[in-house]
Amino acid sequence: MSLHFSVLASGSTGNATFVGNEKGSILVDAGLSGKGMEGLFQQIDRNIKDLSGILVTHEHSDHIKGLGVLARKYDLPIYANEKTWQAMEGLIGTVHPDQKFVFNVGEAKSFNGLDVESFGVSHDAAEPMFFSFHQDGKKLTLITDTGYVSDRMKGVIKDSDMFIFESNHDVEMLRMGRYPWSIKRRILSDVGHVSNEDAALALADVIGDQTKRIYLAHLSQDNNMKDLARMSVEQVLTERGFEIGEQIELYDTDPKNASPLVYI
């Protein structure tokens, strides 16, 4: 067993990602209810009690809904940066001080031989951050909930073997949709979410020779569709010389169904 992962849930209604190796595993975010999270772990035949901890990207409810419940029930440590801890006060219930750990932006920590590198993103949260995971020369990057992908972010995430990458909305669907203009403006802003086309343009800059799989994540329920996201990203990448289906595979993620465990 080597570095492996499953996108347990991804979308507007809740987000969670499982990452492990032969020695242990961690959870990134717990954006569904405690019961919902337990069901997702059953889908991949893993036990929550075996986790080494939970990493938190930011305090929005679709990333922390089940966090307090899981931490208390399974006595799990939680890792978040100081500003996120402050923002989560009152949102996750009481967590014992012994379960609270600080993992700041730009730091790296090791969990059972799995090296985790944090990096900041541009989102309307206290101090949102995401992660690249490294083991034995392999690299997995998780990046969603950002209004754009800066050169600094690209420098951290480039040349990953696999990406879990935000492809939140189709711009025209969003503009023509039912959301109030204030919400549309927030999503389209630099602290909102990345569109299908912008995701593809960013990916074109970070895909390396060893990149094999890209999981399109955090799709909006109202302003995107799996087929549309995949088609839009594939079109842009193909125009830039990438061979989709041969060199690189694109995969969907789902808000309710875990992706099969993949070993890198």
Rank of each mutant, 00 (worst) to 15 (best):
A125G: 15
L237P: 12
G68K: 08
K226L: 02
A217L: 06
L76R: 03
V56A: 08
K109N: 04
T238D: 14
G147F: 04
E107Q: 12
V7T: 03
I264T: 07
G31K: 04
S220R: 04
D75V: 11
Y74H: 08
D209V: 14
V95T: 01
E82I: 06
D227E: 09
M162V: 12
A229L: 08
E172H: 10
K184V: 14
D252S: 06
Q235K: 15
R152L: 13
A108G: 08
D227N: 04
Q210R: 14
S25W: 08
R240H: 15
E89Q: 13
V156W: 08
P180L: 09
D124Y: 05
S189P: 03
D29W: 04
I164C: 00
L27K: 02
V236M: 13
Q135A: 10
E38Y: 04
W85T: 11
M173E: 13
I48Y: 01
K83D: 11
D170N: 14
E82F: 02
S167R: 00
I264C: 11
T253Q: 04
E246V: 07
P128A: 14
K184T: 13
K184H: 13
L32W: 03
F5R: 03
H218W: 09
G14S: 10
M88R: 11
K35F: 06
A80W: 05
L219E: 06
R240I: 11
V116G: 11
L76P: 02
F111Y: 12
S189F: 03
F111P: 02
G68Q: 08
D159V: 00
T146Q: 05
T146F: 02
G68Y: 10
V233E: 06
L228H: 09
H169T: 09
L32V: 02
F18V: 03
M129P: 03
E239V: 07
N257G: 00
